[in-house]
Design a binder for these strands. Structure first.
Lengths: 209, 209, 209, 209
DNA sequence: TATGAATGAGATTTCATTCAT
DNA sequence: CATGAATGAAATCTCATTCAT
């Protein structure tokens, strides 16, 4: 009897799909709900029904990707980072697992990551990259403190460390923007991570005064 | 006795000043001409009288800083970069002059640079950082080609080079955002540049196939 | 009990109605959307919801009238105009059908036609009269060429023909502006058309050199 | 000693000249005083100094042309119009003098006339054409009354007369728009006036009831 | 489930005009 | 004789959001 042939998740998904395109193209702030809805064959009201508001729609687009990314990061932070720092250089491929996981998450949700990391200005996730950097930074400081404890007359160079964290995150964003597929991404990111680890070893401590 | 004795240019300057604050806080797109003018004690019409349009006002804010920055960059590109690459590592302080000039320009126009480099989305200068990267990139590729010519079985690794260019520019932006005064900025940027030069030497070439 | 029970389409119609009045009074360019909406008890946003933009609203006002007018004109142009020109004078009432149709369309949409023909400057229909004249002109030139072929030592006088086309169209506009009802309009336009046909027969050809 | 090399009429004339161009191109309403002044190398204030306001500037542009046109028209109306109407047809060239005078005035002030007759909407002269038509109409009605007095069972057909007046004025405007030089203008307007006079003789009276 | 209607606050921009100097 | 500064009112348009149905 019903004339609606759409099942109930179809509209929501269409909305997410069109929103993804629009956010990707214009960024959160300049994206138009009107355009998104009309391209989905729906009206703005539908957005409010399904997602509450514009930020909700944004979350609808990036939510899953975000969750997976967070999981990878949390997992990484939670890991025992008691690695023998003094011998770290001997097996520089150690961090490959983390890189690979990250690359996988990113390329499993390529568009969503692009949006989250580079088109989220104005949304409630606009500080997302910063928050990752903050977490990573604390984590690296803790690690470096241990490292410093083993090396006489040295202390942690926090500024350099903070910058290296930035560079690391930005390296993944750069990778995303320049390498369209997973393999070339991995091929790109490995030497980059190598370089960063070496830099970390060499610059994360400074002479104690 | 009159209260309406205003210097000539006072209004224009007030506008620039208020616009600077607003652009700094909200970025070009979200900045409101209404707010800017009213905080300057004027009307939006005044903005149009002095600057033509919103982009004109933006230019009024960043113009001078931009010109100086461009001058430094042009000068840098124009310089003979025939440095003896093979012995480069022996005098790693070589690029200090450029860094210092850059730091000076940046800290002479601290707010303006922040706006130009990080709050210009939507304005006619939104591609400014990209354009710098492009120029720098070409310049570095040329340099690396010469370098490669001296080293057997090596060729330029363009992707790595391009990333290093990004890192370099972002290092200056990072510096701006984290070091509020010139001295600490220089203190920060010098080892960073050192690191980058070493990385450049080591990673800009890859094995020829 | 509720006071907000509005027919669907009531607002749209109110908007069209108020817009008609405003366009009629001020012409497209000087008409104010603010005034139109507020007189309809709505906001300018409503105009954009229903019509997209000012030109859309204009179209909403004149669209139907325009379509009917175009239909009559197209039909007229499409007709075989192989009438025996040489004996044309014997049945000068021939064009009465066209005139009557035109008069009917015009008086069915009196205000809309006034707007379309005389208040449309600045709108996307501002060249409408010209486009009619162009079509009519081509049509008349073709007719006159056939006529000329039957008369020795004569050729088409294009300038006179073009002017007569203008006069004809303007006659209908004049009629609209001076005759408020259909009957007096017909009473006026018939001798005018007679006169024009005679003029056409006499002046559309000039001596060949 | 003076640094101003301009004599005092130069600015005024420059303003008139630039205003002419702008009015011609955009019409009174859409013309911008700012643009006019700046193209004249002056500021809007100068317009207000010389002309009082926008309408004053308009007058500055069309004033002289207007005066001459009015003179020709007044002269024409003032003339003894006691011509022997019954024999009028025998010397259809009679009105040539008037036409020629009109053509001369028009082509002596070609741009100004175009502005006055076709770009004056919004200005204080926007009703100028109508006022001419009104005057011409009264004049023709008076003439026709005399004519009617000589012909039994006929009375003045005011509507037709009024339309013919319109056609006549519009013929001159049409001429202006289509004939760029005086000779071709005269060549065009003469047969037109002939036609109109014949029409006048034939259609200005209707059967008395 | 969704629509369709409508708001209200905002945006940038344009313009004739004024007036002290 | 003319400027430069500035106003104030208006313009069109965009948008996220609400809500009765």
């Amino acid at each position: 009897m019903s004339e609606k042939i759409t099942d109930n998740k179809e509209s929501r998904e269409k909305l997410v799909e069109c929103a993804k395109r629009e956010f990707l193209e214009k960024g959160f702030t300049k994206a138009s709900l009107r355009k998104i809805s009309s391209e989905a064959g729906l009206t703005t009201g539908a957005v409010y029904f399904f997602f509450g508001d514009k930020n909700g729609l944004f979350e609808g687009v990036v939510g899953e990707a975000l969750a997976r990314l967070n999981a990878v990061l949390e997992n990484h932070f939670a890991q025992d980072i008691e690695a023998d720092l003094l011998t770290y250089e001997h097996h520089s491929g150690d961090h490959d697992d983390f890189s690979e996981e990250l690359v996988n998450v990113i390329y499993d949700h390529y568009d969503e990551m692009t949006i989250l990391l580079d088109r989220s200005a104005g949304s409630k996730y606009e500080r997302f990259v910063d928050s990752i950097i903050d977490k990573l930074d604390s984590s690296y400081i803790a690690l470096a403190e241990k490292y410093a404890a083993c090396v006489p007359n040295k202390r942690v160079n926090r500024k350099m460390l903070h910058w290296l964290t930035h560079v690391q995150i930005n390296a993944f964003i750069h990778m995303m923007q320049h390498e369209k597929n997973r393999d070339s991404a991995l091929h790109f990111i490995k030497p980059v991570m190598d370089l960063l680890i070496k830099a970390w070893m060499e610059y994360s401590l400074e002479d104690d005064v």
